[in-house]
Each structure stands twice: as structure tokens, then as C-alpha cells.
Simulated scan of single mutants.
Amino acid sequence: MGHRFLELATSPAARAAQAAQGSRAAYARMEGGQALFDQLGPREAAFIAARDSFYIASVNPDGWPYVQHRGGPPGFLKVLDDRRLGFADLAGNKQYLTLGNVATEDRVALFLMDYPNRRRLKLLGRMHAVDLAADAALADRLALPEYPARIERGFVIVVEALDWNCPQHITPRFTEAELAEGLAPIRHRLEALERENEALRARLAEAG
């Protein structure tokens, strides 16, 4: 089978390092043959729709990598079809480093994290900016009507490959909303105990 992500990401130097460290044979079996892990399926679509942030890496003309955090409401990164992703570029600090990088080198890498469940998805693709004023259909798909931020443009990523990582070394972390949901039963129990305590105090006061 041909693990598309590994084929794109593994350089000759990385293969030499694998050989030196004893892992080359295992990874060599994933190269060649029919391409796999090169399209978005239902599993990836569901995972992406639940994310409220991701990290994106691009490269400038001098070869320096730049990693940027992108955030928004859950599902702001849209699955357009089985090979394309899109998201609204929200107004920020106006450095435009990623925008400038993809103008000369369109290859990008995305890293999506699910900390509570210790899952992560990596994507390789080619990204370009889109003037949403000239593409009403895409503008509708990328719109965030209830999110208080100004959209400057759209970005579309043509996915070349993807990979699911193992959960090793991922420390679980939880958002405020996730904590509130998980702690709700405890909060309700505490509220019930407080009501019981107040009732007992009232009866004791009456007895005294």
C-alpha cells in the first residue's frame, strides 16, 4: 500500500535516519502501490467539524517555516469535498505572514488536536487565498454569521495527504465548555447538598 502522507513527508535523509535507528523496514512496507490516506472521509469530516482551532505551517521564500494558530467557532474549518478544505481568514494583527508565504510556496501542513480524547490529525496540502467578494458560493460556505470577527478573505486547501497519529504523549486538556459539561453532575449534586444543608439548618433553628 502507498501511505501518501509518509511518501510526501519522508525525505532521503529521513529514510537514512530510519535505517540507522532500525525502523526502515517497517516504513518501507508503507511505500509504493495504490495511494492511501489521500482523501477526506467521514471520520476526518466529523473530526474536523468538531475542532475550534488548528495549527498551520507554511514556508517563506528563504526556507524559514512559520507555524500559526487559527481559531474560531467549532467547525470553522470546512470540509468542501473529499479533497478540499476551506476557512475564513479573520482579521488579526495584520502581519500576513501565512498569506505572503502561500503566495510564493503553496504547500502547507495542518495539525488538528483533540486534547480530551488524545487524538490528532495531520494534513498536507496546497493552499491559496480567495477573494470572497468574487465567489459568493464559497463565501456562503465559509460564513460565520454568529461569530464576532471580520472576514478578510477565504483560504482553500487542496489536501494531498493525511495521517492519524497515535495518542502517545498527548496530555489531555479541556476547554471551559468541556469542563462545564463534565463537571455538571458534580455541580448539581453540590447544589442539592446545599439545599439539604439549608433545610437541616432551618429545622434545627426551629427546634432550638
Score class of each variant (00 low, 15 high):
E191C: 07
R153L: 02
A50I: 03
A45S: 12
R150C: 06
D52S: 14
E198H: 05
A133K: 15
N93S: 07
H128I: 02
L142K: 09
P42S: 12
G154W: 01
L99K: 04
R83T: 08
A20V: 07
M30K: 05
N197H: 11
Y115C: 04
E105V: 09
Y96P: 02
D89I: 05
V108N: 11
M30P: 00
I48E: 03
I151R: 05
P61G: 14
L124G: 07
A16K: 14
A180V: 08
P65C: 11
G32E: 04
I170N: 04
Q168V: 06
A180C: 05
A45E: 09
E146K: 15
E206T: 12
R118T: 11
Q68P: 07
A109R: 06
L142W: 08
A143G: 13
L123H: 09
G71F: 07
F76Y: 07
Y115P: 07
L90T: 06
P65E: 14
Q68L: 11
D89M: 01
A177N: 11
E7R: 01
D62Q: 15
P172T: 06
F174T: 03
L193A: 13
A177D: 15
A26H: 09
L80K: 03
K94H: 13
L144K: 08
L144F: 08
A134E: 15
Q34I: 01
A180S: 11
L90H: 06
R189L: 14
A161L: 02
R120N: 11
L183H: 12
F5W: 05
G75S: 03
K122C: 10
R118E: 12
T98Q: 09
V102T: 08
R173D: 01
Q21K: 10
D52K: 13
D114L: 04
F37G: 00
L40M: 02
A207K: 06
T104Q: 15
A28L: 12
L179Q: 10
D89R: 04
P61D: 13
E31R: 10
A199E: 13
P73R: 12
P61M: 11
L124F: 15
A207N: 05
A9I: 06
L190E: 14
P167F: 03
A202G: 05
N101R: 08
H169P: 00
R173Q: 14
G125S: 11
L183G: 05
E191Q: 14
M113N: 10
A184Q: 15
A45F: 01
R29K: 14
Q68D: 11
R70T: 08
F37M: 03
I151T: 13
F54Q: 10
A207R: 11
A134R: 15
L190K: 15
L132D: 09
D140C: 12
L112V: 05
F76S: 02
E105P: 00
M30Q: 10
L112K: 00
L200G: 01
A50P: 07
A137D: 15
L80M: 13
R4H: 04
L190W: 15
T175P: 04
R201H: 08
N60Q: 14
F5E: 00
E196Q: 15
P73G: 03
G208F: 05
A57R: 12
N93T: 09
L124S: 02
F76M: 02
L162S: 00
Q68W: 03
W64E: 12
R189P: 02
D89K: 07
G71Y: 11
Q68C: 14
N93H: 10
G182P: 04
D163M: 03
